[in-house]
Structure formats: structure tokens, C-alpha cells
Design a protein around this nucleic acid. Structure first.
Lengths: 146, 146
DNA sequence: TCAATTTACTAAACATGTTAATAATTAAGA
DNA sequence: TCTTAATTATTAACATGTTTAGTAAATTGA
């Protein structure tokens, strides 16, 4: 008898189930991103910036699930590549405000169709109702106090 | 109007929702693991090995959602620390068979209670029914053809 | 039988994750 | 005001993620 027969199988373990499900969903997205030479993290950052407008780095880190040290490096390279701009906030000089550029928006626009096609493929197989149900449950899980 | 008003907000994006939910769930587990000087990946490997017995590395990689190059490095350090053993398979000399040691099992056993407490906290807040529903949907999502 | 292909793993290079320490600035309290 | 604490971001160091390439062993198929 193994240790986990007291516990639960990894397939019913929430952290592992979330990870495996994400790997499934990400596989085609990674293929798409590889074609345009963009990492998963940079893609998330562009989407968050497009959604929120000009924001400070801590906000990006929270929304895109990145740690600040990673973000510092990634934004540096994205600034070099002309996908985002940074400027010091005039009110609070600790903050640096980040904004997506036209080039960044262009990348999003160019890949919107491919991105949607991937989502729709999953929606077709699982069904809209189940997918909404899943998204609701995931939002609820995020709100749990840990 | 931003690019994503054609698309969907990041909170209704499956990859991002899965990532954010996982961050929530993992936070207390990371705290637990830090106390015993174990990474999240090593914890997953121990759980998979405990569940499956002696297996080849590709199997571990699949089950624990790790790529083989990462696994090579991590197993090397776990072997040094006496948590797993490796031996060449006699039938197929390409394979190396990996097994959890008593030390590895001891680590699992010592942290089973803490691990369960974390799961039960989430279960209490979300409810058993919703959690089962979520796990079912995640399993279904994993099975989607991408 | 043997060349071509597949499988299992490792190596190397670079990007990101993670923690700790630090600098700069701002906020809060005595 | 002055000091202390908190906030924002960066740097450094090391572990892991990710991709590409490579090696060795096994399998396939003419």
C-alpha cells in the first residue's frame, strides 16, 4: 500500500489536475506563439496591457501571474523589441508605468483569429455550457482564502 | 476600444483562468514545501512515484507535467539526496527505471497531514459537490484533442 | 540483413521562476 | 519634523522551463 492510498490519486489532486488541464490547453497556443517568436509570458503581458491600458508593473505581475523579478527582465526585452513602453510616474517616482505600443497591438491583432480558433475548438468539443461552468468554478476557486 | 474587445477578457480566458486558479491553490502548498526544502516539482515526482511504483522517466514526465530535460536534472539531485533510485532496465537498455526510496516515502508521510489540511480548507470553502464538479470538468478538458 | 526510423534520455543554451538583498521613494507615527 | 515602516522596482544567484541538438539503443521494413 502506498502512502497516497491514505490521500488521493494525483488525477483528483487539484494542483495536478489544474496543471495537466493547462498543459492540454496550452499545447496549440505554444505552437502559435512559436511561429511569431513570442513566449507564453510575453503573450499574457500583451493581453493584460491591451485590456488594462497603462498600468504599473505590480499590476501586470498580479494579472499575468508573474513575479516582479521575471517581469523586470521580460519588459526590458519587450521594450527593446518595441512592444511596450515604460515611463516613470510623475506623482510617485517609485512606479514605472507600462503601456502597449502599436507594434504590440499589431501582434495581438495578427494572432487574434488563430487564438479564437483554438478556443472554439475546445468549446466545440466540451460544449459552451460546460466551459462556462468550468470558468465560473475557476473564478470561484481563485477567490478562496488560503 | 482595445484589441480584446473582439476577444474575451483574460478572466474568461481558459489558460489564464487555469493559471490564476492554480496560483491560489499552490500558495499554501509552497509554504509547506519551503519548510521541508522541497520544490513543487520534486513533490509531484514523489507523489507520482509513490502512486505508480517503479517507472521509466518518460512516464514520470507525462504524469508530473515535466519535460525530460528538466526531469534529468531534478532526478539527479533527488538521487543525490536519497529520495529516489535509478537503474538501467535489463530488457531495454535505453530506459532507466526510477523508484522512490524509504526516505522519499518518509517525506510524503511526514507531510500528508499538512497536505490534507490544505485540501480540506479548500473543500470547506467551495463545497464537496462543486469541487468534484470542477475535478470532473478538468479531467474532461485534459481529454480534449488539440 | 541492414539502412532508416523511432524511442529514451542527456547536453547545452537561453528564458523564466524563485528567493534574498538592496535602492529609491513614499507613507505613517511619535 | 524626524524617524521608522511600507511600497515599488531592480539586481544577483541559483533552480527549473523550454527548445534544439545529439547519442545510444531498439524497432521497422524492404
Amino acid at each position: 500500500m502506498n502512502t497516497q492510498s491514505h490521500s488521493k490519486s494525483t488525477s483528483r489532486s487539484l494542483p495536478i489536475a489544474l496543471l495537466r488541464a493547462r498543459e492540454t490547453v496550452m499545447a496549440p497556443i505554444r505552437d502559435m506563439l512559436q511561429d511569431i517568436n513570442l513566449t507564453e509570458q510575453k503573450w499574457r503581458i500583451l493581453r493584460v496591457l491591451d485590456e488594462l491600458g497603462e498600468v504599473e508593473q505590480s499590476t501586470i505581475a498580479n494579472e499575468a501571474c508573474l513575479l516582479l523579478p521575471s517581469l523586470t527582465r521580460i519588459l526590458r526585452s519587450m521594450e527593446t523589441d518595441g512592444q511596450i513602453t515604460r515611463r516613470q510616474d510623475s506623482q510617485d517616482k517609485r512606479r514605472s508605468m507600462v503601456k502597449i505600443t502599436e507594434e504590440g497591438r499589431r501582434i495581438l491583432a495578427n494572432n487574434l483569429a488563430a487564438s479564437l480558433a483554438i478556443s472554439e475548438n475546445i468549446e466545440t468539443q466540451m460544449g459552451r455550457e460546460k466551459l462556462d461552468n468550468l470558468l465560473d468554478l475557476l473564478e470561484e476557486l481563485q477567490a478562496v482564502k488560503v
